[in-house]
Design a protein around this nucleic acid. Structure first.
Lengths: 231, 231
DNA sequence: CGGGTTCTTGACTATCTTCAACGAAAGTGG
DNA sequence: CCACTTTCGTTGAAGATAGTCAAGAACCCG
């Protein structure tokens, strides 16, 4: 999952559910905290998340970390480059995964439909990552955090009374490393959104979206919304 | 082209030259300043850059811009998502391009080898973009600019006496929008590198790399290098 | 319950941006 | 070809945003 602003051109083709799966392999299960693969590992399988949440990370020698993506249900993780994984992948919660052979992606073979679908998933991945560039390069802390919550609301928000509830299985540090911020800034931004009644925190890992419209405005850098909120 | 730190795992498979091309279509030529496609256009062809430099951009409603990538010789641009382009693409210089049919990427058809190569290019694109995330999210201005120059030196640097020369066909604003900075910061960082004799500017669009080792150290956030340079 | 981790908050600082001015370069039209 | 205009790049000063360092609170887990 990347933080993408659904563009006008995608409205048609939103993959709301999980397609794929004329399955050749049986489901993989992973416990929260377990690693699915490490950077440098030879790629044997790709996986589509069926339930649970994964976290893909890369490290710099000096310890700086970037969370590349979170893997939510429907997402496909493990695309190879030169046959290898280029991130670490950890399960943040218990997770169920549908594996696909790397050869199905790369050669197709006996599964032309699946081959095609995996390729399309890779292409959508490229486009989604481009959106994420915009976020990392050009958005403020408030915009980043608000965008993040908006995307999660749309993808995995659950109705909770008249509001939407979003569970955050990842730590503040994970969110920070995903958005290019520090944990302190993420924490402060949550506080700020909470104080301005845009969200509420049911507990540390559960957010209630009180004013989705305001959150969206903040996500898109609406300056009026920023000022109203500061007051 | 993204700013990627060539990882230890890629050393094997560096595609130094341009492979591909068991060509089905004839070369396209583009004048500097001309657009190859716009965001939202239906994708008909992908293109491999044979000469010249392209610039891929996305815009936000409020005018903020992100340069997604520069297309240098060997790079492939125009990967579709849901059949459409998700960036604008402009030629920064006159350019020659090898077109490939979108159907060759998506269906293969009569060109299985080409189909495979295009797919591999898409997968390498994903990995390179992941590197670039790290840059946008976690690097300082000096690290970003130094990394950028290092990558260009390795990809398109020309020997100039005992030094390497790098041409920058793009504007400072393009570099800034690529690295997530402002033009002022890019300009100041160039000045800083110039004053510390790591680089020299032959003219505004031509950089001489005087101390590649120092540049690399700065690119990787070597703090000793930073301090030495500040002094 | 206790110890360790994670989250929040505060005070301070650094980095980068913003705003503004100026000079250099490049494009335009007589 | 030269003057004029416009764009682009550089520099300075001031300000804002996010980062750092540090401490305390909340949470988690055995």
């Amino acid at each position: 999952m990347y933080v993408t602003i659904p563009s006008e051109f995608d409205v048609e083709a939103r993959d709301s559910a999980l397609p794929l799966c004329p399955c050749n392999l049986t489901e993989t299960r992973l416990r929260g905290g377990a690693y699915l693969y490490y950077e440098g590992d030879e790629v044997d399988r790709l996986y589509q998340v069926k339930s649970g949440v994964l976290r893909l990370t890369r490290l710099l020698e000096d310890g700086r970390r970037q969370v590349i993506a979170f893997g939510y249900p429907g997402d496909i993780v493990g695309f190879p480059s030169n046959g290898r994984h280029h991130t670490d992948c950890e399960a943040l919660t218990n997770a169920r995964l549908q594996p696909y052979r790397r050869t199905t992606l790369e050669n197709g073979g006996s599964h032309p439909q699946l081959h095609h679908d995996l390729l399309q998933a890779a292409l959508r991945e490229i486009s989604a990552m481009q959106d994420h560039f915009m976020m990392l390069g050009r958005k403020s802390a408030v915009e980043k955090v608000s965008s993040f919550l908006c995307v999660l609301k749309d993808r995995v928000g659950k109705p909770q009374g008249q509001y939407a509830q979003v569970k955050l299985p990842m730590s503040r540090a994970d969110i920070a490393d995903f958005l290019g911020l520090t944990t302190e800034t993420v924490s402060r931004t949550f506080t700020q959104l909470r104080k301005s009644k845009v969200i509420a925190l049911e507990n540390i890992h559960t957010v209630i979206i009180l004013r989705p419209d305001a959150l969206l405005a903040l996500a898109q850098g609406d300056n009026a919304a920023q000022r109203a909120q500061a007051a």
